[in-house]
Design a protein around this nucleic acid. Structure first.
Lengths: 208, 208
DNA sequence: CTCAAACATGAATACTGATTCATGTTTCAG
DNA sequence: CTGAAACATGAATCAGTATTCATGTTTGAG
């Protein structure tokens, strides 16, 4: 689909015009960063192009040199966020052989990430309305990775047998809820406490 | 213009003008119902007053007889949703003495409700951006009820001891994630399967 | 019946904000 | 150096749409 035969040097994925000089590179990144801050804070609809460009320190028209649409920056941010989160968690759990421990470390890494990037968290949430496809991809990709981890752990006898797909979604739901605690409800509870309590629940359940 | 010393009989909570005849009552409800459908489907911003009123079969101006603002209908829907969900779950778990069983029944009731009202589900999600206060109240109220249930169960020895607050949020997170499965990701998996898997996780954890 | 209050209408208002464009300025390959 | 491609500008366009209002119509208490 898309891209007729026009573009000799096919540009990046869904990106607008890609910059071709160092200056352009810098400007594009400035706009993207500003968009993250502004959209994260005000939400998609109240974040005007004017707000974004003024935050980025460029003129309004400059926006359209690098992005074709307001929606497009948004999508790009969601994608970026997905890559970043997955990378962060993968990194944090890489060397852990035991799934339960990995679960704990992954949750901690996720919560720390969320606390460090509250804007990105809200952006992903809003994607459900602004760019449903990006939202779906975000969660599906995440869930797929999660599930395959559980399948392996199940085979290795590191966790009990169960419906890995539903488990994956449920565990993601826990992480998300605790992340929301932190960012949206501004809980004072330290991350380590949240992780400890959640880990106990995940590992042992609540049956007496 | 304006209302001089008019309002002798203070109107309802945050509501716009309350109807005073049967006809008005019906019209107001028609608009509210239409708003639920339209906003649920198109999202807050793409749902125009024109869309809503035409779906309700009334003129555009009629909207402002019963609501002062577009945002106000939205808030009302979120509040309504909250009451409805809590009521539904309370009803479903009323006669269950054992907390674990109640957990299972409550989750099932929630998922069935969500499946029956997919629009309302999306509306609550969007409230995070459109009406953060309503969003917070929705989840806080829910969480408070949840937590006090867990506290009682803990005291009665029906569940193991643990951090009830974090548990409450985590369990809500599970319910929410599975609800999203149903409504957003259109999972084919029957509710009873979801409930069974989630229950097993909640009760026993995943430790082998 | 009757008329004031309720209710309903839909065209007009008012404003916001995304996107475009004609016009400069900067960069860098040759 | 130099000129064409990149980059930047910000005022103007253009469309959508929330809200208001002047004008009817309906209802129900008395």
């Amino acid at each position: 689909m898309g891209k007729p035969a026009a573009e000799a040097h096919a540009p990046q994925k869904g990106a607008g015009n890609q910059p071709k000089t160092a200056r352009g590179e810098a400007t594009r990144k400035a706009i993207l960063t500003a968009a993250e801050r502004v959209i994260g804070e005000k939400g998609y609809n109240d974040a005007s192009i004017g707000h974004i460009t003024s935050e980025a320190g460029v003129a309004q028209g400059t926006f359209y040199i690098y992005f074709t649409t307001k929606e497009q920056v948004f999508s790009e941010l969601v994608l970026e966020m997905g890559r970043l989160v997955r990378h962060t968690i993968a990194e944090a759990t890489q060397d852990i052989g035991n799934r339960l421990e990995a679960e704990e470390a992954g949750l901690r890494a996720f919560l720390e990430f969320v606390q460090a990037h509250p804007d990105l968290y809200r952006i992903v949430q809003e994607a459900l309305f602004v760019d449903p496809a990006a939202y779906e991809e975000y969660y599906r990709t995440f869930a797929d990775g999660y599930r395959s981890g559980l399948v392996a752990a199940e085979a290795a006898g590191q966790i009990s047998k169960g419906d890995t797909e539903t488990r994956a979604w449920a565990l993601m739901g826990i992480a998300r809820a605790l992340g929301e605690q932190l960012v949206v409800f501004k809980s004072e509870k330290p991350i380590s406490d949240l992780v400890a309590s959640a880990y106990d629940l995940i590992a042992n359940g609540i049956k007496p």
